[in-house]
Simulated scan of single mutants.
Amino acid sequence: MRKTAAIALASILALGVSACSSATSAEESGAGGSYTYTSDQEGVKSLDGVALASTIGELKPAKKYRVAVILKALTNQYWQGIQKGAKAAADKYGVEVTIQAASSEKAQTEQLTIAQTLVGQKFDAYVVAPESTSNLNPALNQMRSQQAPVVNVDDARVPATVFIGPNHEENGIQAADELAKLFPDGGEVAQVEGQSGSSAAILRIKGFKEGVAKHSNLKLVASVPGNWDANASYAAAQQIIRQNPNLKGIYANNDTMAIGVAKAVQESGKKVAVIGTDGVPEAISGVRNESMAATVSPLPYYEGFWAVESAIGLLEGKEIAPWVVAPAQLITKENVDQFYDTEGQVITDLYK
């Protein structure tokens, strides 16, 4: 394992994650067998994503499995990264993946229609990234009735066999910790929140507020909606900056919003540190040119790769923990080159 992998692994282990047994036994979850769908339950056992390959062991699929991948929206660079990782895993293991997504992250009915159409084609396994905790419920019920393994990736936690994703609270905590580090003499900070009802947004908001509260030198002066939208976040940041002339930093719950916030900061002429979450190429460019102080990235390429890899492993009767934990890796100008290439794409051989 390269040095970069060790850095990411240390970051994840700091969360207190423990490697462990799968949601089902190998005997129960072998090809053609039954699977449990409990990965959304509180306190499930977890496995560091960096250790997934070594935990699964040699993986030579017995057939060319068909895996359906249903994402939120490919208009967002973040989901494009997950798509890229899913395709890479399919190529590595010689399986067929069909990847589809809704036209936007708010198109919940459209995403359900896509999922139900794919379920009707009876894939061997399904990877889902629901837009909410309930919008895919009818399709999920159909997947379970087919006794197919279901891998839930990144955001809304739903009853699935395995969840691949970060500790979203830790994303917010990391952002607060970085602002405390940047401003040791203290200061006022603000937050631009993600879409109401989104699991990721709820947890990142909570994590940031808890993170700020543990640092006596920080004071949270505003926490307002940005709805995963760059323009809405730009307008929200303009208002926050006008109302708080002593503002030192803003945390946006994702990078799309952080980019809008950074634009507002630049136009204001003030020195306000902007931190996002996701690690999309435009935000990585912002970290490099210092329009953003940092982003907290779960390395989306690996989320997609691990999701398809887990689906294949389950079909092959491998033991996999209910939660495969993606990193909450703080990306700054000092370490960006360890994780991202010059195009802002996640380096794909970090864990080889």
Rank of each mutant, 00 (worst) to 15 (best):
D40S: 12
T24D: 13
V272I: 13
S145F: 14
D255N: 05
V67R: 05
Q174I: 00
A31M: 08
W306Y: 14
V127K: 09
E303D: 08
L13W: 12
K271W: 13
A293W: 02
A62V: 06
Q345P: 05
A156D: 14
A156V: 00
L59A: 09
G85A: 11
K248G: 01
V224D: 00
A88Q: 07
S223F: 05
T36G: 08
A26G: 09
D349L: 08
Q174K: 13
V192N: 03
A232D: 13
Y234A: 00
K60C: 04
A156G: 10
R288M: 06
Y93D: 06
D185E: 14
L74F: 07
V44F: 13
A175V: 06
G57K: 12
T98W: 07
Y65F: 15
A283L: 10
A23T: 07
N137W: 07
L315P: 01
S198A: 15
S310L: 05
K64M: 13
H215C: 01
A53M: 14
D278A: 13
V150T: 03
K45S: 15
L218N: 02
T75R: 14
Q83R: 08
G211R: 00
A148C: 11
L220P: 01
Q338C: 09
K87T: 07
I259H: 01
P166M: 12
N231H: 08
G286S: 10
E27W: 10
S199F: 12
S25I: 04
V127T: 08
K214M: 01
V151R: 07
C20V: 06
G211L: 02
S22W: 12
K181G: 11
G94L: 09
L13M: 15
H168W: 11
A326W: 01
N171W: 08
Y251C: 01
P159L: 12
G269H: 09
I259L: 12
D155M: 12
V287A: 02
L314Q: 09
E210Q: 13
G43A: 15
G81P: 08
S198V: 04
A102F: 10
Q147H: 15
V50T: 09
G30H: 12
Y78F: 15
T161E: 03
G49Q: 14
T161D: 02
G304V: 03
T55L: 08
Y65V: 12
Y351N: 06
S11L: 13
E282Q: 05
S34T: 10
G249D: 07
D177N: 15
I259K: 00
A235S: 11
E188W: 05
V224G: 04
W323R: 07
N141R: 13
L74H: 10
G249P: 05
G279T: 00
N217H: 08
V280F: 07
L179P: 00
A321L: 11
S22C: 15
A51F: 15
I240R: 02
Y301R: 08
N227R: 02
V212M: 06
T36A: 11
Y126N: 07
I331E: 02
V212P: 05
I320M: 10
S104N: 11
E193P: 01
G269W: 13
A273R: 00
